[in-house]
Computed example of a mutant assay.
Amino acid sequence: MEIDFNKNNDGLVPAVIQDSVTDKVLMLGYMNQEALDKTLETKKVTFYSRSKKRLWTKGEESGNFLHLNEITTDCDRDTLLVKVRPEGPVCHKGTDTCWEETNESSFGFIGYLENVITQRKDQDDDQKSYVKSLFNSGINKIAQKVGEEAVETVIEAKDDNDELFLNESADLLFHYLILLQAKGFTLKDIEGVLKERHR
């Protein structure tokens, strides 16, 4: 990995710290060659502190270390993206990130879709909505619909029509999101179970 430490004439490059699971940006620090070498050697993120004028391993006092997963450079080789597993809060103010955001998964478009389902579930009955009609039908109807979509997905998995398989898979996932909410859960609850199993 070639890095241009001399571009700014101070031997430092910005290091953007990102959670390797949630993809949240956690903080920004600076590294010189020595800080990078120590980070790679110890697998704990170490910066060059511009105020203290020395190397500083995140968590050396608080115990809130940043455990290294990987480091990549940008196209100009003068900025680092450091993907980590944080141990505790990242910001010195005690928050998850230096932008006072909660460090949790957003699930991209699937998370957006989950929010749309919540909105449709909570809307008035007089508004026409397929999602609302399913919630009004009750848990048995929703569970039955998930079962039907699961069977259709399995059937299409055995055929060679990728488009049909993907469409049935999308239907299954959509109805599963509805079932989760009907039971009072979200994707974050499922993520929690999977994380616990992964340990």
Rank of each mutant, 00 (worst) to 15 (best):
K52S: 06
R50M: 15
E148P: 02
T153R: 05
F174Q: 03
N161E: 14
E34Q: 08
E2L: 13
L36S: 01
L26K: 00
T186M: 11
V82Y: 02
L28S: 12
I117D: 03
Y30F: 10
E168V: 09
K43T: 15
G147W: 10
A35D: 09
V16A: 09
C91L: 09
G111A: 08
G88D: 08
K52A: 08
N32H: 02
E101R: 01
E2H: 13
N64Q: 05
T153I: 12
N32R: 03
E2T: 14
E60C: 06
D4E: 13
D23F: 05
L68P: 08
D171C: 01
L28G: 08
E70D: 12
D76I: 13
H92E: 11
K24R: 15
L179I: 15
D74G: 09
S106E: 10
P14N: 05
I117W: 05
K121A: 02
L26W: 02
K132G: 00
T79E: 10
L36K: 00
V131Y: 02
N64I: 08
T153Y: 06
H175N: 06
Y130N: 14
L81N: 03
S62P: 14
N103Q: 13
G184H: 07
D19H: 01
E70Y: 05
M31G: 00
L177A: 01
V82N: 00
H175C: 07
V21S: 01
L68D: 02
M27E: 04
N136P: 06
F5K: 03
N9C: 09
Q181W: 05
K24S: 15
G138R: 05
S129D: 12
L166T: 15
D96I: 10
E114A: 04
V154Q: 06
M1C: 11
E34I: 15
A35K: 02
E148D: 11
E104C: 14
R54C: 12
E163P: 01
D37W: 03
V25F: 03
K38L: 09
G111C: 06
R54D: 14
S129T: 07
I190Q: 04
K24G: 09
T186F: 04
T97C: 10
D126L: 06
G94T: 10
G88E: 06
V151C: 04
K158G: 14
I71A: 05
E168I: 09
I71S: 02
E156N: 11
G147F: 07
D122T: 08
N103C: 13
F165V: 07
E61V: 10
N64P: 07
C91S: 10
N69T: 11
V84C: 05
T186G: 01
A15M: 04
D160P: 04
H175L: 11
N8G: 07
I17Y: 00
K53Y: 09
R54S: 11
R50L: 15
I190H: 03
T22G: 08
R77T: 15
A15S: 06
V131M: 01
Q18R: 05
E191W: 12
K183G: 13
K38Y: 12
Q123G: 07
V131I: 15
G111D: 03
L166F: 11
I178L: 04
E152G: 00
C98Q: 00
T46Q: 08
L12S: 04
A15I: 14
Q123W: 07
Q33A: 12
D160A: 10
V90I: 14
K53G: 08
K188W: 03
V45G: 00
K53M: 15
P14E: 07
L36T: 00
N64K: 04
A182K: 03
L81H: 02
E149N: 15
